[in-house]
Design a protein around this nucleic acid. Structure first.
Lengths: 201, 201
DNA sequence: GTCTATAGATCGATAGAC
DNA sequence: GTCTATCGATCTATAGAC
């Protein structure tokens, strides 16, 4: 903001670097990897194309840097230490609200899936930084609640999260809302019923 | 196969048409929409580029025609009329084996998700022709098995299918197998336990 | 009908001025 | 460091020969 630039050790995140990544994010999230041009990235970031290439080796390097940054920032959901009916419903609603509160997240997931064939290690970055921690948090919670008597908390955690992600995938990402509509609460109710009212034989 | 071409009314599916679509399929499924060039489509189909444009108006038209065809051919899974432990396990294993038996299917789902932002109506074609019938078949089965006493068969069907799709998405499509491994049977066992051993309070 | 050849635009990446 | 200008390749789509 200030015109006089304060003494800023170059260890900090560069200003232009952030500008470029910001512009790159909008382009890649909207048009995908192949559909994004370095010209538009430069224009969107308010710099010249040569400047982009002075900060990133090539298009792949820029894309990888962007995915790394987004994968570090985003958090799927958190689990509060309350009784299951409260905590699990909160997890479900957090997940289902995620695309409303941060609409870029839906596009980010779409982008990762779209490029998971051509950039397998970027998909693995997503799994490692976002999906895995989420599964582990929920697994830990389910295991800690002994009253649930779950024989396999990790499998149940995957079922819980997976069915919610699929719901979002079908209704929002693939625009299935109008074709196979279902109220959010109705789905969550049945999911909670399955996990909570289930006792091993 | 025969050299002498039999009298074939042009109402039937054209030969060149099929060649082009076949070539287009390999290219689009591998490289996505923006990453596919009409030159390569033509080369892969064994025709010239001008011929491609004589059969399809433009790149978007070709892509739409391909998705329409694939969405009509593919079938998610079928439900046999056996007792739940048998029928549901068969559904689960059919779904999880789908990508092994027809590896193009994984790429097809990836492509649909990848382009669901730019081609929403093609995603809806997928939902209408593939996802919705699958959900409806399983819903009908779950509702017909009164011993399950499921209060909301459709929601349960979505949970069942969704958790399986997510498993495939994470383990195979996003290459999460090595990062968060889980045996297929262990996951299916827990999913069946949830659905089968659950009685309403 | 199907081809070759090519137009016109845009791509990723770089050279050279400042 | 950042810019403008540009290269060679590749893109979608079409014109014109056969």
């Amino acid at each position: 903001m200030t015109k006089t630039k304060p003494i800023e050790p170059d260890t900090a995140t560069d200003d232009k670097n952030q500008q470029i990544l910001q512009g790159a994010m909008q382009e890649f999230l909207t048009h995908g990897y192949a559909g994004t041009s370095m010209d538009k990235v430069a224009k969107r970031g308010g710099v010249s194309k040569a400047t982009v290439y002075s900060y990133f080796a090539d298009k792949e390097g820029l894309f990888a840097a962007l995915v790394q940054r987004l994968a570090c920032e985003q958090v799927y959901f958190t689990v509060v230490d309350e009784e299951p009916t409260v905590a699990l419903r909160l997890v479900a609603e957090t997940l289902l609200d995620k695309s409303k509160k941060t609409p870029e997240f839906l596009n980010f997931v779409r982008l990762i899936i779209a490029e998971s064939g051509r950039f397998p290690q970027l998909a693995q970055t997503f799994v490692k930084n976002i999906a895995k921690p989420g599964i582990e948090r929920l697994t830990h919670y389910l295991a800690s609640r002994e009253e649930l008597k779950l024989p396999d908390p990790e499998a149940t955690a995957r079922i819980f999260i997976g069915s919610l992600i699929y719901f979002q995938l079908l209704q929002e990402m693939m625009h299935g809302k109008e074709i196979i509509p279902m109220e959010r609460d109705r789905f969550v109710d049945d999911l909670l019923r399955l996990v909570l009212s289930c006792k091993p034989n």
